[in-house]
């Protein structure tokens, strides 16, 4: 399951709230049907491939001028083979005029399901792509430290030069070469300035 690499920079409180509510309902219904995993996967598919790839579809979903029956027809035609729970959710959302918030529902649903299943997403930034050995070791280490199942989201960022940066929630563990060099630079500068002010005569010979 791939997600956007950078965290969202637009905070739509209304969308977040609505997303949470519909996501809870969806998870409840999917669990009752016993198909949570597949429903979430299909929802991800619809959001990533269907909506992001076709802005006009998203616009149609969000538009109040496209009426409810028309939206239902689109849903049936395009996503008719999706699981019935999902189709129902989309129809309910269409009826309530909330179909434009489908992406928010997906984000919340993934979050809530991870929370429920005791999983966390760890974003790993490295200068070069991870190999399988490192990946499993990192996953195990993190799982041990955090006491949860860890899902890695890998990002390659050449600016780090080396080392890695792991982000879990809002906490960042930074051992990248770039940040260490930066810190070293600052420490040296401050220390040198201190020396320069206290023993300025050391650095110059009066000739």
């Amino acid at each position: 399951m791939s997600q956007s690499a950078s965290p969202p920079t637009v905070l739509d409180i209304e969308a977040e709230q609505l997303g949470k509510i519909y996501a809870r309902a969806l998870l409840g219904a999917a669990q009752a049907a016993g198909s949570t995993e597949s429903v979430l996967e299909e929802l991800g598919e619809i959001c990533d491939r269907g909506l992001r790839g076709h802005p006009e579809l998203l616009a149609a979903f969000a538009s109040p001028r496209v009426d409810m029956t028309e939206k239902s027809r689109i849903i049936d035609r395009l996503f008719g083979d999706a699981s019935p729970v999902l189709v129902q959710l989309m129809k309910v959302m269409a009826r309530r005029g909330r179909l434009g918030y489908l992406a928010a529902v997906r984000t919340s649903a993934v979050e809530q399901y991870d929370e429920f299943a005791g999983r966390v997403v760890a974003e790993v930034r490295t200068a070069v792509p991870l190999d399988d050995v490192l990946r499993t070791e990192l996953t195990n280490q993190l799982a041990q430290k955090l006491g949860r199942t860890v899902r890695l989201r890998e990002v390659v960022d050449e600016r780090l030069i080396g080392g890695m940066v792991v982000r879990v929630g809002d906490t960042v563990f930074d051992s990248s070469v770039a940040s260490r060099l930066d810190k070293l630079g600052r420490a040296a500068k401050a220390g040198f300035a201190h020396q320069l002010l206290t023993h300025s005569e050391r650095f110059s010979s009066a000739t």
């Binding site: 965290p7 920079t9 982000r167 960042v172 930074d174 051992s175 810190k183 040296a188 220390g191 040198f192």
Partner: peptide, 23 residues
């Protein structure tokens, strides 16, 4: 020599920090 002393004294630990994103 001063810079060298600074670099030698520098101990690099893994930095743990809490972050957010500017909206």
């Amino acid at each position: 020599s001063v810079l060298q002393a600074e670099i030698e004294q520098f101990d690099s630990k893994i930095e743990v920090r809490e972050v957010g994103t500017v909206l």
